[in-house]
Each structure stands twice: as C-alpha cells, then as structure tokens.
Write a protein that binds this DNA or RNA. Structure first.
Lengths: 188, 188
DNA sequence: GTTCTTTCTTGATTTCGATCAAGTGCTGTT
DNA sequence: AACAGCACTTGATCGAAATCAAGAAAGAAC
C-alpha cells in the first residue's frame, strides 16, 4: 500500500497492522489517463477513490454547457460525491481525472465488509463528512481576495495542480480577477 | 404525538405503529419563548429538536458582532447543527428560537436506544444529511433574484415566518436589495 | 527552430448590488 | 391621541468585480 494512504489513515484515525492488511486486500489500484471519468452524471457513487498521484475535478454543466467546478482534488484526497454516496441516488455532478493519475478504488461493498471484520473502519465514516470549506465560503460571503487567501491557507497545493481558469471557476470569480488578486497578493 | 411529526416521518421513511410508540416514549415536548437558545456557541449538539410550531434561526456572530444567519427553520424542520452533532465537537453556530415555539427534543442517547430496539430508526440518519440548499447556493453563484426565486420554490413558508431583514441576511443580500427584488417579482 | 494555441496579464468600460440618505408606514406604549 | 421605535421602500451615488478588448508569455505541434 502506498505511503500516501498509510499516512492519510494514520492522520485521521487509529488503525492496527491487521487493519492495514485487511484494507489492502480490498483496494484496487488503477492508473487513469487525463480526462477519464470516475463518476458520470446521474450515476450512483458506489465507490470511493483515494488519489495517490494526479489531480481531479468535480463539476456540472450549467444551462449554457459551461463546466461549473464545485471541487478540486489533489494527492491525498478522497474522490467521491458525498451526497450520492450517502443517499444511493444519482449524482448531479461529474468527477473527472484532470491529469494522469494513480488511485485506489474501494467499493461500498468492500467498506461494509471491512467494517464487519474490524470496528476500526467505522472511523472511515469521517470521509463522508462533507469537506466543510465549500459551505463556509457561502456562509461568509467572501471577497475574491479572501477566497484566494482561504485557498492558499487550506489547500495551497491545488494552486500548483490546476491552471488559473480552473481555480477561478472553483472560486466563482473570473480569471481576470484571479490574475489581479494574485498580482496584489504577490506584492505583500 | 403531534400530527406534524407523524406526517414528517411517514414522508421520509417507513415506520410501524410500534415504532411510533417507541419513539413517543423518548420524545420530550417543550414550549420555548422567543429568544431562547437551543444550542449555545461552543456547545456540542447532543439533541435534535423537531419544530412543531414557531420559528428558529441558526447564526454566528462575525468579527463586528453582527449576527450572520446561516439557516432558517419553520414547523416541520429539525433543529440541529449537523457538523457538531456528527463530529461531537463544539458548534460554531448558535440555534435560537425566533418566536414562541413548540418542539420535541430527542437526545442522541435516545436515538441510539431507538436504533437498538428497531432498525426502522436507521432511517433517521437522513436527518443528518445537511440540507443541500446552502451548498447549492454557493455552487451556483446565484444573483439576488435567483436566490429569492430559489427560496420561494424550496421554502416559501419561511418568507412568512421572518422579517425581510432576516431573510436578506440569510440570502447574503442587503434588505434594500431584497425589497427591490420583491418589488420586481410582484410585477411578474 | 517556427507557427499555432492556450493561458495569463493589463487596461478601459460597464454593470449590479452595496451603501448612503430620506421618507413612509406600522405597532406598541403611555 | 401622540410619540417612539422599527421595518420597509425608494432614490441617488459609489465601488468592486464582470465584461470587453488587446497583447504578452508560455507551451504544444510540426
């Protein structure tokens, strides 16, 4: 099992050597090419994917067929649509690999099996807690500068993984505004 | 048990007569006066409340001590802070009764006990799914008109329960803008 | 290398919602 | 009834970000 996942699990819970061995038997390692779709629109999210290397985006197409990016992911992140996974209903969003990536796939059946074998895997339920950062963005009604600072503090690695137009879409600002924010920011 | 709760449960799951009886023994009915606090800041949310009559708000105080409203509730809604309830960590937000209200209180211990007695109560886990409307607001980057239309479609009763300044804070627009939106809206 | 494309930057202009400022109307209190 | 205190409306102005429009820079394809 890759170091990334071991570190991630140890940071977010307590697992024994046996737990790691159990988990390893359920993981499916996949290599994905840029542009591959992990979760199609209207498909039920029935696996979660641990991103070892690469980058992924979650988005939907608005009425004018523009991709609206709702989440960005880098190495160490879990890829899933929380809502679809929890409700077993079709996903409104699409998950797509943004650059060549390595992932571990873990099916919902595997997760249930693991929990049956070891209570430790209950802790994985944490993955289901929607990363609250998006909700906080909304609650706080941030300015473009605040949004960028927020991103720099919480997920700075994402800035390296995606072009600015993607970051801008994620932050709900225009690429021009992001360029000016970065310009201001680099002078302080 | 009040009709509101029976209807609510039947709409969101399948429960037997025995389930209702079991539940009834765990419910604590409370009358609350306008302004009473249900969940204090930094308190762990260890009960959920079903709002039979009245109205409630969830908010936090920003750096300048203005209340920023993050959720509004009316009869038929459950009152809880999802994040604190799920993580057992202190809540960042406050839940306050906005007008004299009738609620049922249900503690987390009661919920666990109910699940132990009847699998039906697993379905209550749905309550824990964060109402997605707030996230959608953010994802879609709505204009003030769209926000108001969204509210009119999804939760029109809230508009009757709260003054416009409260609705405006919830929608992250000024009361002036809301007044103009409503004015435009009433002419179509 | 050179060309073609895409990304990023920079400037000018526009636009929408916030802010500022009165004024109106409603409710409750004495 | 008279007043005080709010909630709401309406108008005028302001400002921040979007939009429009070139260019510059950086990659990719040949």
């Amino acid at each position: 099992m890759e170091k990334e996942l071991i570190d991630h699990l140890n940071e977010n819970g307590k697992y024994s050597q046996d737990d790691f061995k159990l988990l390893e038997t359920e993981l499916l390692q996949l290599s994905l090419k840029e542009g591959e779709i992990i979760l199609k629109e209207k498909e039920v999210c029935s696996s979660i994917y641990f991103l070892i290397k690469g980058a992924a985006i979650q988005f939907y197409n608005d009425d004018t067929h523009n991709a609206v990016i709702v989440d960005l992911n880098g190495p160490g992140d879990w890829l899933l649509n929380h809502k679809s996974f929890a409700t077993r209903k079709p996903s409104e969003y699409i998950i797509k690999v943004y650059s060549d990536s390595e992932v571990y796939q873990l099916s919902i059946e595997s997760i249930h099996g693991l929990i049956a074998k070891s209570q430790s895997f209950f802790q994985m339920g944490k993955i289901l807690e929607e990363s609250t950062s998006r909700v906080e963005f909304f609650d706080h009604n941030y300015t473009p500068d605040q949004k960028y600072h927020f991103l720099m503090e919480r997920r700075p690695h994402l800035i390296q993984l995606f072009p600015q137009k993607v970051i801008a879409s994620y932050l709900k600002i225009t690429p021009e505004t992001l360029s000016r924010v970065r310009n201001r920011f680099s002078k302080t």
